[in-house]
Amino acid sequence: MKIAAIVSRKGREFETVDERSSLAEAVDVMHRKAIGSVGVATGRGAIISGLVSQQELTSAIALHGADALSRPVADFMRKPVLSCRCDDNAADVMHVMTRERCRHAVVWNAAGTIAGLVSLGDLVAALLEEARLEAGVLRDLARSRLLAMPG
């Protein structure tokens, strides 16, 4: 399964905050939009310099306490940003995400613009759905062959 199919199904929204925004502002966006991460943009959103997710949030608070919330997201963002392309294979991207211990990847299209964001959960769900579909097709094929056999 290609990443493009997953992005098409889940939507192309990609929320960002400016690198000078406080961690609290990033948390507010994540809460309001019910999402697990936001991109950290530099220069009017032209460049994605990092990602802030629940993982970075908990690390920031563990290391700096509540004071972390008033500091810039750039202090805590994950960088470099894990990214993939629309034509990448979902299983390959999932393998990289697991190896890098990263739950989100920015998706770029062929034109070099952001196509969306995928999470590890998105990939697992899509690959499970694909496996269920394949199992159903194989089961139907086996049934039809059994019914066609002379009895």
Rank of each mutant, 00 (worst) to 15 (best):
S21L: 07
D88M: 04
H95M: 12
S21F: 09
S22Y: 09
W108Y: 10
N89W: 14
P72C: 04
S22I: 03
K10D: 02
G112N: 03
A148Q: 14
A148K: 14
P72A: 05
V40P: 04
A90I: 06
I47C: 08
D88E: 15
C86W: 02
V81N: 09
A91P: 00
D87Q: 15
E56F: 06
S53C: 10
C84V: 03
H31I: 08
A91D: 09
M30T: 11
H64G: 05
I6R: 01
G45V: 07
A142I: 12
A26T: 06
P72E: 04
V38M: 04
A62C: 11
M94A: 11
V124F: 08
K79D: 13
G151H: 11
E129V: 06
I35G: 09
R99F: 12
A66W: 11
R139G: 07
G121H: 10
V52Q: 06
S8Y: 00
M77T: 14
H64C: 12
E100W: 09
H31N: 11
I114Y: 02
D75L: 12
E56N: 09
L127N: 06
L133Q: 13
E15C: 11
S21W: 06
L123N: 00
V40S: 04
L141A: 14
S8C: 01
V7K: 00
M1A: 11
I6C: 01
S59P: 01
T58E: 15
M77D: 09
R78Q: 13
V73W: 04
A110N: 11
I3G: 01
W108D: 00
A66V: 14
S53F: 07
F76W: 07
L141G: 09
I35A: 08
D92I: 00
C86P: 05
V7M: 04
L133Y: 14
V81M: 10
R101A: 11
N89M: 12
D18P: 01
V96H: 04
